[in-house]
Design a protein around this nucleic acid. Structure first.
Length: 574
DNA sequence: ATCGTAGGCGCC
DNA sequence: AAAGGGCGCCTACGAT
């Protein structure tokens, strides 16, 4: 059997990979399938590096492989993540390997076999075939294989890698046949690498000053409870600060919105719901409002970002959570463990480690600039040349800047009321191409038709997404889908652009020792040795224009970023 | 007991 | 200023 070093792989050629820790690698190009025994992590790492030196495009089924590579400390810059590309091409989110295979083979996705659906005492049906081969007689993948049985032997791992290459080739063929083939292929590659970045983000974690975090938690939630009854006492104490404002004291469960509503009614305050923005309008009417709003903030930290959250997700000064490169709706990145919704008052706890600094950068006015890029509206593209796009639009429409901003955002979100809706006709007149594109997307959404982002992502609008909150029947559900589609076109394209930026920063930052530690929709945080911080900041800014060069359908749309070097996340501007 | 849904709210 | 799009995560609660 030849070793990996004997194989000649053309630059950019698909190279399937299936890692079996402690055993070796299954490998496959479109023309050959083989395996390499490697019992130690060092051997595994060396084997991958030797192959990567030939500059293949690595192919794998799903994020379990990048997770394994990152654990080994291997760095990859070209890959094709089959599951990620599937989501790009077909929409949807929680997709399984079995469904990806069935889709490619034109099999009914509803027939994809599930693990364990066969009773223990049942005889294997004819469809199951030989467990040693990955594909059953009926054409579907063996569920045992998709659930890990591919890793039983290196021979199987090699076959598994070969199947991944087969799927990747099929996906590329689908892309080649499209009118937007070049752009879509480019997105498939960038989104795949973004998935690898996700594995790195999950592994490295976000630096957290644990003492500072505990100080903030203590301020909001009190000391760390020692027993259950101690915890109850702290909770009761927190509740009491609100309840003492009642004219007729009685126990109220503040965590139950209905009880809060009737409590307020007894105090002479009638509200349809108890949301913060509505309660804020009642500030000054009754002291309990202020106390209740303050209670909510403290309760948020106590329940979601309290000691339990610390114990569960922060270890060795790093906050770690799961990352996904593309969510179910429009393709934004998602993260768990609170990484995407840390309250601002907790951001002082996100601190660079000794000898390191953060470079923080966020894209400025990214949604309207993306709208200009994807619509090709000449007048709107002209407006992106300015640092402050909204001011240019305001001057054009002859309205105040704030009004122009709300109108532009409203057009992208589907706002229908208020002053922003009033300005909409003017917006149509000045920027007809951009507005027509949004309206067209909204129409498609209403009719349950999918929309496609400029990078080629298919976004489904017909499923149960975006229909909550509408009680008055089908018409408003259709409007809700329209708003969703309208926004998804922009949000999805912005997400594609952001990911190109993120993976560029990841690569350009490597010689500087920089580590991407947070991706937040339009904001990047990188952790860098303090001596390299200035150079890294320059690089991050330059990478915006480079990302635009790779991603933007229009070469003359200007994108801007605010970049700063800081020690704590709370030192972000404003 | 376990699951799904709703109200609520954190962030973009 | 108005209350529109996305996500994750909390509690409460009704259905299974």
């Amino acid at each position: 059997m030849p070793t990996s070093d004997d194989r000649r792989i053309d630059k950019g050629e698909f190279l399937g990979l299936a890692v079996v820790p402690g055993v070796g690698l299954g490998l496959s190009t479109p023309t050959a399938t083989w395996w390499v025994a490697a019992e130690t992590d060092d051997d595994l790492r060396a084997a991958v590096r030797n192959l990567d030196a030939q500059e293949p495009r690595w192919v794998w089924w799903d994020s379990s492989t990048p997770s394994e590579l990152v654990r080994l400390g291997t760095i990859i810059d070209r890959c094709w993540d089959v599951l990620t590309v599937h989501r790009l091409l077909h929409g949807g989110w929680r997709t399984t390997i079995g469904e990806v295979w069935a889709t490619l083979r034109d099999l009914d996705v509803d027939d994809v076999p599930k693990m364990g659906q066969m009773g223990l005492l049942d005889a294997p049906s004819d469809a199951d075939g030989d467990l040693d081969v990955p594909v059953r007689h009926d054409g579907h993948l063996q569920p045992e294989w998709t659930h890990g049985a591919w890793a039983k032997t290196l021979e199987r791992a090699a076959a598994w890698a070969g199947l991944a290459v087969t799927v990747a080739e099929g996906q590329e063929k689908l892309i080649d046949a499209r009118t937007d083939a070049d752009r879509c292929r480019s997105t498939a590659r960038s989104e795949s690498l973004a998935e690898f970045l996700c594995a790195e983000l999950a592994h490295h974690g976000l630096p957290v000053d644990m003492l500072e975090a505990e100080r903030i938690i203590a301020e909001a939630a009190g000391p760390r409870p020692k027993t259950i009854s101690h915890e109850d006492a702290i909770r009761a104490e927190r509740d009491e600060v609100v309840l003492r404002h009642l004219s007729a004291p009685q126990p109220v469960n503040l965590r139950n919105p209905n009880e809060v509503k009737s409590m307020l009614r007894r105090e002479g305050l009638d509200v349809e719901n108890t949301r913060a923005w509505r309660l804020e309008q009642l500030r000054g009417e009754h002291p309990i409002i202020e106390a209740l709003l303050h209670w909510r903030k403290d309760e948020r930290i106590a329940t979601t970002y309290g000691y339990r959250w610390m114990d569960e997700h922060v270890h060795g000064g790093r906050l770690r959570g799961g990352w996904s490169s593309s969510d179910g709706a429009a393709g934004r990145m998602t993260a768990s463990a609170g990484l995407h919704n840390l309250p601002t008052e907790m951001r002082s706890a996100v601190a660079a480690e000794p000898g390191f600094r953060f470079v923080r950068a966020d894209l400025g006015q990214v949604e309207p600039r993306v709208l200009a890029a994807v619509s090709g509206d000449r007048a709107f593209i002209e407006a992106t040349q300015a640092d402050d796009l909204y001011q240019v639009v305001a001057d054009q429409l002859g309205v105040a800047r704030q009004v122009a901003k709300l109108a532009v955002l409203g057009a992208m979100y589907g706002a229908t009321t208020g002053e922003s809706a009033h300005v909409l006709p003017k917006l149509h007149k000045s920027y007809p191409v951009a507005m027509a594109m949004l309206d067209d997307a909204a129409d498609r959404g209403r009719q349950r038709q999918p929309v496609t982002t400029s990078g080629g992502r298919r976004i489904r609008t017909g499923s149960a997404v975006g229909v909550d909150g509408d009680l008055d029947g089908a018409r408003s559900a259709a409007e809700s889908r329209g708003r969703f589609a309208r926004n998804a076109l922009i949000q999805g394209a912005a997400a594609e652009f952001f990911k190109v930026w993120a993976i560029l920063v990841r690569r350009r930052g490597r010689p500087l020792g920089a580590q991407v530690v947070l991706c937040l929709h339009d904001e990047l945080l990188i952790h860098v040795p303090q001596g390299q911080a200035g150079e890294a900041a320059q690089m991050v800014g330059d990478a915006v224009a480079e990302a635009a060069f790779y991603w933007s359908p229009q070469p003359d749309v200007r994108f801007v970023a605010d970049v700063s070097v800081i020690d704590r996340w709370s030192q972000a501007k404003e």
